[in-house]
Design a protein around this nucleic acid. Structure first.
Lengths: 330, 330
DNA sequence: CTGAAAGCGCTTACAG
DNA sequence: CTGAAAGCGCTTACAG
């Protein structure tokens, strides 16, 4: 009851294995009658070509690596759905690499390459020169997801977070708010820096002084911190890089009797499911996470299909975002 | 600047490729001096064995398939971390399969097998006889994660949700509550059924009538539904299968002016990050999601290592859980 | 449109 | 402890 081999199929169909292989890979090159016959046997026997043999012989594995950082949570799940949908559509399989320790990055990259994937989807919020160098030497195309490429030899699919933060800030200024703070994280991430730049630009343009606060990633640490912060003064608006931090801030405020959104308006940046489960519901930038994954994978497919393209194209695809106005703003 | 092959390494080291291969796979069979020399060259050249060739020749791919259902979110991310950590430890790579359409399950399983993985981690909350039959015919070991195996030929790593629900319900009864409702989902999942059984048993033992309510998976539908439900009567305690639904219920209650936990206590079942971001913070069963992934992968490793074991062992590993008492209960 | 044959890059008995 | 050789299961020019 072992797995059928291509030989078995060829034997049963009375053709050579070359023909069976062609039926699978270049069906148009096979006479219809032969093709039908072979396909029937393939189905009957439940034949599935061995992926390793296929990969070895064709030097294509129809597998792509998805490299994501450890910290990634809810939103990454959705992104992977997007990637997987596109992958399915084009017949690719996903190999997952979790980039745990930044110091091990080089090793990880080695593994990725050794796994002989046809392409790599790379998500990393802390790009170093080393990484760029590694990518240069990578024999397969690489596309960044939710990460903006700094090199114009590498394509990326992202959202213009700077523009997004700018627009939100400007909108809040236009609505008459002046005391708008930006709450980032202690650790500096590229994407959060983009948001911060957009915020600062909008503030300066309006003649207002940017006010940037760095919070911790830990919920209980933040609670203490926000408590103190709100004791000192309550801003009109807080623009927060991460939904979970925004909600945490809101909860602290509400417990202190500060009215959201009347006294304090809070805006998040991810539109995770948290945003809908908070009370009041969090206004936030609606980042098309699923689409990013989907587009990135589709784009990668193009690069993998076309050797040429890889060296000419390196698109920076910026996806449209929305803003979901909910109860935490007025 | 192409990837180095085993031939290149052998040439540079002045040994045969068999020796290089042995250095990698059975280092103890190679004289130390030779081994050192070869390892140095491997490092210098940045040689990485081609995974496909290796898999084909050895019939082992050091890759495992992780099959998860589409709906999985936050908690699955953590489980995959657990899987990945164990996988790294044992030198395995993860291939991700998302089980989108239950009807396509058979096809998916075909793909999984064709991908020639060494083992399969399977998560599915709706097992059918067909699936069990497919698994019987699978040439590599399969382990269920967060899914209880109904067959004693298939191992699984899970939590005893029935026991967990029983204990929580009993505790709430002991604390003097009588009107305890169980809120499940319209769609029936095996794990939720386990919870329901545990709840019902505890209620009956105390001479109380179980009260089971089925909510939708959609937040806004639920809000309308809960509003009506709470208009009719406010139970002492609501035991809710999913954190997000529990929080949604809490938010509706709070908005109606019902005091949580004074008038209504709410308990969730997953301990996702939502639970810490709700206001009041949600009491819930603390399911060791990371550990489940980690244990399942470790266990799978044993089965993959030992042909024998696979046919003798089919452990049902039930992990210990905790209950995180927070603000939504008194 | 089809087949015979080489080759993909490894691993692993087998001999020595 | 090491090497020569067969073989893993496919794909793909090449020839016909």
């Amino acid at each position: 009851m072992n797995q059928a081999k291509i030989y078995d199929v060829a034997g049963a169909a009375g053709v050579s294995l070359a023909t069976v292989s062609r039926v699978l890979n270049h069906p148009e090159k096979v006479k219809e009658a032969t093709r039908e016959k072979v396909l029937k046997i393939i189905k009957d026997k439940g034949y599935k070509p061995n992926a390793n043999a296929r990969g070895l012989a064709s030097r294509r594995s129809t597998t792509v690596a998805v490299v994501i950082p450890e910290l990634s949570r809810a939103s990454v799940a959705e992104m992977i759905q997007g990637i997987d949908d596109a992958a399915k559509k084009f017949g690719y399989t996903i190999r997952l690499f979790i980039n745990r320790d930044p110091k091990m990055e080089e090793d990880l990259w080695g593994e990725v390459i050794a796994s002989s994937v046809d392409g790599i989807l790379f998500m990393n919020d802390e790009m170093t020169k080393d990484i760029y160098r590694q990518i240069e030497y990578t024999p397969v195309p690489v596309v960044f997801v939710n990460t903006l490429s700094q090199k114009d030899t590498i394509g990326s699919v992202c959202v213009d977070y700077e523009d997004c933060a700018y627009k939100i800030t400007k909108e809040m200024i236009d609505r008459g708010n002046k005391d708008i703070v930006f709450i980032g994280t202690e650790h500096i991430y590229t994407l959060n820096e983009m948001k911060q730049r957009g915020y600062s630009r909008a503030m300066r343009e309006a003649g207002l002084e940017p006010k940037i606060i760095h919070s911790s990633g830990d919920i209980s640490v933040n609670e203490v911190f926000f408590n103190k912060m709100l004791d000192e003064s309550v801003p009109d608006v807080a623009l927060v890089v991460r939904d979970s931090i925004a909600i945490s801030l809101m909860n602290v405020a509400v417990k202190k009797g500060i009215k959201v959104p009347d006294q304090l308006q809070v805006i998040g940046f991810q539109n995770t499911r948290y945003a809908l489960l908070s009370n009041p519901k969090l206004t936030c930038a609606e980042i098309p996470v699923y689409e990013m994954g989907n587009k990135a994978m589709s784009y990668l497919t193009e690069l993998m299909k076309d050797e040429e393209a890889r060296h000419h194209k390196a698109d920076k695809i910026l996806l449209a975002y929305d803003i979901a106005w909910r109860e935490s703003t007025k």
